[in-house]
Nucleic acid binder design. Structure first.
Length: 466
RNA sequence: GGCGCGGUAGCCAAGUGGUAAGGCAGAGGUCUGCAAAACCUUUAUUCGCGGGUUCGAUUCCCGCCCGCGCCUCCA
């Protein structure tokens, strides 16, 4: 089966392959670095992480660029309130972003580009748009004239001329010819950060950074452009208008949008008191892997309802997989290879792959893995799983974890060492043999307090970190 | 009003024109010094509601109800 994605541009499933048959050129809208990442951000970024990993799994090379928005109205305002330059203000949050995303095991894109490092590139694109007659100047600011771009609205599937002049469109912006026109370059305002350019003193509008940087690093036509659903309009629509009006070429072939995360059935917002950053969850004692699993367990085009109950369920589900892996590595099996078990592993892998090929159906992919785990556990109990089957089973787990990446526990820096655990475990076994159950229970509890669980099995003791 | 997503067991959730994957929780069991941990079994005659097409629909069509998002900054 071939790799297919749902394309927002066409609202259809389409077979995917990169233009050049080798390297996928992908752009994703990154964070505005004015705060710590929240779990809604992470839902989108996690879905893009799966996309990255799956594209590579399927043999493509990857050239993925992600922007950091480090200048906008909020940043300017908050930096001013903090008495800092925008550079000082955003540097800390940019660093925190990569610390946090690494904890939930998001791969870093090949290219990370900051808006403030690319002012000149944005000015170049705006000048090209001027040349192409798509702009006008009003009160010192440069605007994009959407009536000059007939395809405006093709991504959000909106025909603006037929649209009711709704209450939500600003009607007091006298400086624009059309309410939907958007700013490319904002004239300098007193006290605000600005750059001198051929366009005059000012700063870039929000949308231009993505068009400029994407084309600079990936060429005029991208294979994939992705982001959260809220960006479809106006951000991505405007990116298309800017890029295509400047280059005359299609900006991106595939547009992938991740649905939003809700919290307890409601929109996450600070005013509702249900707003969580990754740091909030870690402080409450939840593991980064459990959040990663939860975020990935619902396919990206479906709204995900975050609950703490769900987070705990995710942690338990991961335990089941880790227990299986531990059993696979520690239990004793009869010599030989069981053909049926090999067949089951191959079937599980093909189901797993077909699921992810189908627009990254992570829920179905997980189903294939769990079904396999249960069948193999049953076979292990019945003696049907042989020593030679370890390779096939391990291979399946490796493929699974290359994408989901949740099997390896996060171990704190001050955790008890493996050697100490082994030593205490051995002492407990001795105590048990001597029927000194008081001492053996004491050791078990002592290790439990350190987050280590001892398990008695037919073949002896095994341990794991919780 | 326009555009889009969704309503499947207590919760999360996959799915197909031919009779419902998987996870969590619950119940039962195996193992065990008691435990812990682990593992196994089990839990929807039914897929928001009403019509229609069909030999047959949760899956296709029409209508309706409900939830959510975007149309303004937002992942």
């Amino acid at each position: 089966m071939s790799l297919r994605f749902h394309n927002t541009l066409t609202l259809r499933m389409e077979e995917f392959a990169p233009q050049d048959g080798k390297t996928v050129r992908m752009y994703t809208c990154g964070p505005t670095v004015w705060n710590y990442v929240h779990i809604g951000n992470l839902r989108t970024f996690a879905s893009q992480d799966i996309l990255r990993r799956w594209l590579r799994y399927r043999g493509w090379e990857l050239r993925h660029a992600m922007n950091l928005t480090d200048v906008d109205d909020r940043i300017i305002q908050q930096a001013a309130e903090a008495g800092q330059t925008i550079y000082d203000y955003t540097a800390g949050y940019a660093a925190a972003f990569f610390e946090d995303t690494a904890k939930v095991r998001l791969e870093k894109p090949e290219i990370v580009c900051k808006a403030t490092d690319h002012i000149g590139d944005m000015v170049d694109v705006i000048q090209q748009l001027e040349k192409n007659g798509c702009t006008y100047v009003s009160e010192g600011s440069v605007y994009f004239r959407i009536t000059g771009f007939p395809e405006y609205g093709k991504l959000s599937h909106t025909r603006f001329e037929g649209n009711k002049a709704g209450a939500r469109v600003d009607t007091d912006k006298y400086d624009k010819e059309n309410a939907r026109d958007f700013v490319l370059w904002k004239a300098r305002k007193e006290g605000e950060h600005f750059w001198d350019s051929q366009l005059g003193a000012g700063r870039p509008g929000w949308h231009i950074e993505c068009s400029a940087m994407a084309m600079k690093y990936l060429g005029e036509t991208l294979d994939i452009h992705a982001g959260g659903v809220d960006l479809v309009f106006p951000h991505h629509e405007n990116e298309i208008a800017q890029a295509e009006a400047a280059s005359g070429k299609p900006f991106a072939r595939f547009w992938l949008h991740t649905e939003h995360l809700m919290v307890e059935g409601q929109t996450m917002s600070k005013s509702l008191g249900n707003f969580y950053t990754l740091r909030d969850l870690l402080e409450k004692g939840h593991s980064p892997e459990s959040l990663r699993y939860l975020l990935l367990s619902v396919p990206y085009r479906k709204q995900l309802n975050f609950t703490f109950d769900g987070l705990r369920s995710a942690a338990t589900a991961i335990d089941r997989l880790r227990n299986f892996e531990l059993r696979l590595h520690t239990a004793r099996f009869d010599e030989g290879v069981d053909a049926l078990m090999e067949e089951r592993a191959a079937k599980a892998i093909s189901q797993f792959e077909a699921a992810l090929d189908d627009d990254l159906n992570t829920a179905e992919a997980l189903g294939a893995v769990f079904e396999y785990v249960r069948e193999v556990n049953t076979a292990m109990d019945a003696g049907g799983f042989r020593d030679g089957n370890r390779v096939g089973a391990g291979n399946l787990l490796a493929k699974f974890d290359a994408i989901f990446d949740v099997l390896r526990p996060t171990v704190a820096g001050n955790a008890i060492s493996d050697d100490e655990i082994e030593k205490l475990s051995a002492e407990r076994t001795q105590a048990k043999k001597a029927k000194n159950f008081a001492r053996s229970d004491e050791i078990r509890n002592l290790l439990l307090a350190q987050g280590v669980v001892l398990e008695d099995t037919k073949e002896g003791v095994r341990w794991k970190r919780k």
